[in-house]
């Protein structure tokens, strides 16, 4: 006898219940209940159980147990998995190539080309000698303690993923700014991408792609890091001074001219702020992605945890902080330059 027998009896479903009881899988609670011999109605009103799926299953064998939910989801996913793989695999294949290519390029370019090249890029973007020498110093420091290779791997991954985020995210943001309907649909999705715990991303991806493929972590990083650039592109374009837009209309600009000559240039400070956040979030995710074979400093952090190598973990952590500071400073300096050009 179970607490909810009365319910099924009252509904006249007893026959249906008994018919299914023998085929129902045994839940853990059932097993525990069996051993304790506790499969009986609650002793007092105080212990009366919530009508959960498992409680109802006690009373009626045909009623599904709660694990049917997770099992169902899993079965559902597995059944569409093959279909999805057929479609997604080829589409995402270039991502693997890009990542492999970038990793190869960053690894094979000799340090005496790579370090000056990076300093040159920083100088061009930020126009600040102080910042350029700071970046040079940081990388030299990492190289000095033999972390150069790992740092380059991390940078290569961020380089590819952040670029793809911008290439995909900016157009999505523009589309959102032009259609309120699309914005209404997109915002909950972006909210979900941003709040979903990062590890949860990885679970379905592991089923879909082979763990040895770089695109697995590539997709995880992009999904996580693309959100700010989309949001801020949308916001930036929506915030463009209406009076300037009106002037553009009054002089007969087409909507394309308006977008390219007015809206995007005026939204640039916000778009750049989005790019900055996207890069920082790529860095955060690339560390977590080392769980699914992403190379770089994250691997050392992981080693520190697994093997309790305190020093390795801490130094790798500091290396990540240095990279974060570099990336943040450089993008912020670029942003500041854009802002100066946009003062009203």
């Amino acid at each position: 006898m179970a607490s909810y027998d009365f319910l099924f009896n009252a509904l006249g479903l007893r026959d249906w219940c008994d018919a299914g009881s023998s085929t129902a899988p045994m839940s853990m609670a059932d097993l525990i209940g069996k051993t304790k011999g506790a499969d009986a109605p609650a002793a007092s009103f105080w212990d009366f159980p919530f009508p959960s799926m498992d409680a109802l299953n006690h009373a009626c064998g045909s009623f599904p147990q709660s694990r049917a939910v997770t099992k169902g989801l899993e079965d559902g996913f597995l059944s569409i998995k093959d279909g999805m793989s057929v479609v997604l695999d080829p589409i995402t294949q270039p991502l693997s190539w890009f990542l492999e290519g970038a990793l190869w390029l960053f690894a094979t370019t000799p340090w005496w080309i790579m370090i000056p090249l990076m300093m040159l890029v920083v100088q061009l973007v930020a126009r600040s000698v102080a910042l350029t020498s700071f970046v040079g110093g940081c990388i030299a420091l990492l190289a000095f303690i033999d972390y150069y290779e790992y740092a380059m791997q991390t940078l290569a991954i961020i380089f590819v993923c952040a670029t793809i985020c911008v290439v995909i995210g900016v157009p999505i943001g523009i589309a959102m700014s032009r259609s309120d309907k699309f914005q209404r649909i997109a915002i909950p999705i972006l909210d979900m991408l941003q709040t979903l715990p990062t590890f949860v991303y990885l679970i379905p991806l592991i089923f879909l792609f082979s763990v040895t493929e770089p695109k697995l972590y590539g997709i995880a990083i992009i999904l996580y890091a693309i959100v700010p650039v989309i949001r801020l592109t949308n916001l930036g374009i929506r915030l463009v001074d209406e009076r300037v837009i009106e002037a553009a209309d009054a002089f007969g600009m087409t909507s394309r001219q308006k977008l390219l000559r007015v809206q995007i240039p005026l939204a640039l400070p916000n778009i750049m702020a989005g790019v900055n956040q996207t890069i920082m979030m790529s860095l955060a995710m690339v560390v977590i992605a080392s769980l699914v074979s992403a190379p770089g400093l994250g691997v050392l952090v992981l080693r520190g945890i697994r093997n309790l190598e305190l020093g390795v973990g801490l130094v790798a952590g500091l290396g990540i902080v240095l990279l974060a500071v570099i990336l943040d400073r450089v993008t912020k300096a670029a942003l500041a330059r854009v802002n100066v050009a946009h003062q009203q």
Binding site: R243, V244, A247, A250
Partner: peptide, 12 residues
């Protein structure tokens, strides 16, 4: 052509 109260020039 039109001239505006708040100028509405392209700042960039």
């Amino acid at each position: 052509s039109m001239v505006f109260q708040h100028f509405a020039l392209l700042p960039h």
